[in-house]
Nucleic acid binder design. Structure first.
Lengths: 195, 195
DNA sequence: TCAAAAGTGTTCAAACTACACCCATGG
DNA sequence: CCATGGGTGTAGTTTGAACACTTTTGA
């Protein structure tokens, strides 16, 4: 709507009267992407009186980590188009959505360093280089390979016998995150994820 | 109200139709404590459909750090009594306020380690021991004095010539947080607060 | 004199950094 | 053969943890 007609916006919709906020997030995400059982993370709530031209809207922002290849994004009722964008290349958005985006990306980065969120974004089996690239991308910094591998030595990973295929260099070993062992270590207080 | 009649609750109230959430927080804090110009920090928003017996209420939680001695807490319209409680000794609260308390205290602890929030809680001039006690209290852990002092060596502090008075031991030197130098260092990217 | 906390120095282990080096694969 | 990334070891530095010790005040 005016004055934001044609501008990109973060997907969102109204919460139903008898619906939990988390539920609403899941429903709206489903409507727009056909995705189910994605873990949503709340970031911040925005409530300035004039942030929406149609009237008072309070927005509770959520983010979700998912593998883009597995998502079939489809436009919903009020949206003309849906598309994925690289987070560092998003231009001016409608409403106060740039502010929402920035503060939510900060929350995301914070969680990336304190919780094993990264594995939601990686395929089930991944290479250590892919893991490294994820952090390099999010924090826009280059990391030293040898040092990175020492740093993640404590993260509970399952080491597979499989290797990459169809790469024009030495194929890398594949790993998975060991959820079970992670939960176990956390319970015992023997470990705290930190990047 | 039933079934929570007589139970303690976190102060809160309804947001006005044309009021920012932050503003509402300041207003409600003022009504209950007579405090002005306190920096509020948003933690999380709670929106389960049946969390309030009277109907749908979505709660956006805030916390503020302040010096308890300077606060004159007075009961407002709907509250019979207002009182300060040590955070580790709070029992069962009304509604889902224990959940709100816990997640908000987690947010607070997170900010205490990543931002110089601690100085809002300390008097203008404080001793290094008081600073240490604050962290010991929040994280329920004992810290080594010598190591703690090495750790905070990088925090920009103003060292006064004054000392404690009326203590029955060697009086400690008084310090203040150097806001100006802190902002300066942050701008230059030469420093990042970390505890 | 003693109790209590202020304030500092030493030592050893753990973690981080930079860098060098060899390995396996496709072309 | 080369280019590309996989994968590991070393050396030097920084940080952290544990502990001991001296100093200054009031009582």
């Amino acid at each position: 709507m005016e004055p934001y007609l044609g501008a990109w916006a973060i997907p969102g919709d109204l919460v139903y009267p008898d619906e939990d906020l988390d539920e609403a997030g899941e429903r709206i995400l489903h409507d727009l992407t056909n995705l189910d059982s994605i873990t949503l993370h709340q970031s911040q709530t925005f409530g300035k009186p004039n942030r929406h031209p149609q009237g008072r809207v309070i927005t509770c922002a959520y983010f979700a980590l998912t593998q883009i290849d597995e998502v079939n994004a489809v436009a919903s009722s009020w949206a003309n188009e849906v598309k994925w964008m690289p987070v560092h290349e998003i231009g001016k958005l409608a409403f106060d959505h740039n502010q929402i985006l920035n503060s939510t990306f900060d929350t995301l980065k914070n969680k990336l360093t304190n919780e094993p969120l990264c594995f939601d974004l990686l395929p089930e089996k991944f290479t250590l280089h892919e893991l490294q690239q994820l952090y390099e991308y999010a924090f826009e910094s280059e990391l030293n390979k040898a040092n990175f591998r020492k740093k993640i030595k404590h993260i509970p990973l399952i080491s597979h016998d499989e290797k990459q295929t169809n790469v024009k260099h030495r194929p890398a070993k594949l790993f998975s995150f060991d959820h079970k062992r992670y939960i176990d270590l956390i319970k015992k207080g023997e470990y705290s994820f930190k990047m």
